[in-house]
Design a protein around this nucleic acid. Sequence first.
DNA 1: TTTTATTATCGTATATTTGCGATATAAGAT
DNA 2: ATCTTATATCGCAAATATACGATAATAAAA
Lengths: 110, 110
Amino acid sequence: MAIHKKEEFTQKEQDLAAFAKALSHPARIAILKVLAQKNECICGEIVEVLPLAQSTVSQHLKELKIAGLISGETDGPRSCYCINWKAFEKFNSDFNSLFEKLKSVNAKCC
Amino acid sequence: MAIHKKEEFTQKEQDLAAFAKALSHPARIAILKVLAQKNECICGEIVEVLPLAQSTVSQHLKELKIAGLISGETDGPRSCYCINWKAFEKFNSDFNSLFEKLKSVNAKCC
DNA sequence: TTTTATTATCGTATATTTGCGATATAAGAT
DNA sequence: ATCTTATATCGCAAATATACGATAATAAAA
């Protein structure tokens, strides 16, 4: 690969791709579900629910955090993760607008 | 890594993740845009627009095709790609339903 | 202070992705 | 039949992602 080409695309395209990437693993989608279902900012409970080791879950949480989909604070032996609704909404609408833009043209051939 | 854990998640989670993965690279999002803008099933024009080699674009097209987001036929030295609206709509609504499910709980802590 | 419990990080192995040049393929043009 | 043109595929190199065990870090409990 050598050279990264990603940065040669639109910022919006990159952002959208980064968001999609954060959701591109079933474990991370499952984590988001758990975070939403429990009306509390859990963390260790996620490990119990998922078929993954603690370190792996922690890694997925980190990625979700970096992507901005969740926010989290670690307070010693206790953590607090929750969904970052703001960013989530933003990306959701971005996705929808992409779909709308695509749909509006409605090209159809094959 | 050795062992794949992806298949231990819900089918729906896997499908959604696969869809997100298809969109997880700016080049593929750009390709979808081009396919929609041009009111014709192009292909070589994509190569001109993107900052990537022909073989790389072809590979991205293949991935989009495998993911079911586009359908395409190759007719000798000419190809015909276009967006698979059906699958696109399906995944879009799946995404929205995920967001809705998450939003409905509206947990908020940190 | 030492222990305990929880989470993060490091190191590592393997798998997958990304990207390109070179080559194959396939249909139309000459 | 040969050339041309557009696409796909192969083979490879480098980067990233996935997963885990081991270890560090941190704050509360004993």
